[in-house]
Design a protein around this nucleic acid. Structure first.
Lengths: 136, 136
DNA sequence: GCAATTATGTAATTGTATAACGTATATCAA
DNA sequence: TTGATATACGTTATACAATTACATAATTGC
């Protein structure tokens, strides 16, 4: 457990089910929505979902969107490498995009450092209208 | 109501009480913590707090921290001018700092625009250790 | 005064997340 | 093979966060 950047471990049954639900949806899902979708597979309680989500987030396979209290499957197969990811959340269609821009990451780090702050974890979430919806 | 950038209106009794609780604390407070602190002043239900908070956030006097489900009094008397504010949240002492850096704001806007995303509202929250706590 | 708007009070409910149990399963060293 | 440890799982209850619905006051503008 010395490195949080582990090769993707085999998922347990519950983790696979939750991952599957998120991968199929192309929008974020709340824990309780996932629970409802998995009742047929034997899920009965929120904790089953939350425990799986905790692990999936730890593995870097799932992201948590703070401003929605919801979760999305990661789009970048290798996104664990990215330290700072910005999420774009479309308020029309609900789709979430991931932006990992080095210059943005560097600037955030720099701005924080200027005030003496040592950043461990960042949340960058933009809400607005995506390109596709704006074209309509 | 044509301009959200209004001169600070007089606060109502409930709004003043909630604002006072937040101003006195030098860390974010949850709505329910505020409720408990104001029970002596006649507060009985969460909605009284949430309604006041909604207005205070609208006035730009209070910020909501998504990753904490909590609220802080704004430090910048004139921060309404800032479009994008980054918050630094110290995991040791709980203090919250506000960073309004133009270059950061511009870069976020730019990065979003490159993907065709029209950003309306942004959340930038950094968790880590503040200068004071790091010195200890 | 009267209408419209805004603020308030209260109860009930919905949504989100964790605590505290106990049990099962896998892994590994002795 | 046994026992120790760690991890995963199942269930219930509870805590925490936010909103819906409805009734009542207070304020504002005409």
């Amino acid at each position: 457990m010395e490195n949080s950047l582990q090769a993707r471990p085999d998922l347990t049954k519950n983790q696979s089910l939750v991952m599957g639900a998120l991968a199929q949806a192309n929008a974020p899902l709340s824990a309780y929505t996932i629970l409802d979708q998995l009742r047929d597979h034997g899920f009965r309680a929120p904790l089953q979902v939350y425990r799986a989500l905790d692990k999936l987030v730890e593995f870097g396979l799932v992201h948590r969107l703070e401003c929605l209290n919801a979760f999305v499957a990661c789009r970048h197969p290798e996104c664990e490498a990215q330290e700072i990811i910005a999420f774009t959340i479309c308020e029309a269609c609900g789709q979430v995009g991931e932006i990992s821009d080095d210059s943005l990451a560097r600037r955030i780090k720099k701005v924080a450092k200027e005030t003496g702050f040592q950043s461990k974890k960042s949340t960058v979430e933009l809400r607005g209208i995506c390109q596709a919806c704006h074209a309509i």
